[in-house]
């Protein structure tokens, strides 16, 4: 089957690894070959966490620069930083709620302007879906369900070989019991948001 390459970038603590795990479990349910890799050595120390998910007939678990079919960014400046992983055909989904790194607080660097950031991504890729996923996570009942909001948008694009039902089932089996309802709601809100974004 066709190979689909997805990169997810986030800040440590935003739930990137759980999001990719849910996708992997959904692929298992759908009987679709999947391979993933993650770099998370310093995830809990505020660094960048990147995961790669490769669906279909490929042996590699990592994705070279410029070869992501889809990029999902949990934090807007991290989405911009990961633009080198994209090409002109890449579809990008990003949260627009900022989480500035502490280097900005101590005067080492300036946080990019959000409008300019989105404009740049739009120019260089096939499509950008951008919205405040944090607000939707809070609406779902927990800011921690940001990852599920973005999963919802990702699935809405139809680019993933797994269905919304597969993913919802995976959310039920692989996220904490106490958060399942919130996570499902977050997923649905994200799904709707991407639909609205057209």
């Amino acid at each position: 089957m066709q190979t689909t390459r997805l990169i997810i970038v986030a800040v440590g603590g935003q739930g990137n690894l759980l999001a990719s795990k849910v996708l992997g479990e959904a692929a298992l349910l759908a009987d679709i070959p999947v391979r993933m890799s993650e770099i998370h050595g310093m995830a809990q120390r505020g660094g960048v966490v990147e995961s790669a998910v490769v669906f279909g007939d490929a042996e590699s678990t990592i994705i070279s620069d410029g070869e992501a079919d889809v990029l999902v960014g949990f934090e807007p400046s991290e989405t911009l930083r990961a633009l080198n992983r994209c090409n002109a055909d890449t579809i990008v989904i990003t949260n627009t709620a900022k989480l500035p790194p502490f280097t900005v607080s101590i005067g080492q660097g300036t946080y990019p302007d959000l409008n300019e950031l989105q404009e740049l991504i739009r120019q260089k890729t096939a499509r950008l879906v951008a919205f405040d996923a944090l607000a939707l996570a809070k609406e779902a009942g927990n800011f921690m369900s940001l990852n599920m909001v973005l999963l919802g948008s990702l699935i809405q694009t139809g680019l993933m070989p797994v269905s919304a039902d597969n993913v919802k089932q995976a959310i039920r089996t692989s996220t904490k019991k106490a958060f399942i309802d919130t996570n499902i709601k977050a997923f649905e809100l994200g799904f709707e948001a991407a639909a609205k974004a057209g």
């Binding site: 440590g12 809990q44 400046s77 911009l80 002109a88 790194p101 660097g109 990019p112 300019e116």
Partner: peptide
Amino acid sequence: TPAAKPDLSDVPQVPQRPPTLC
């Protein structure tokens, strides 16, 4: 021919996010 990579020369420097003490 390697896949065309986007021209990122006009992308501003994104502030670093090194891991840090909690």
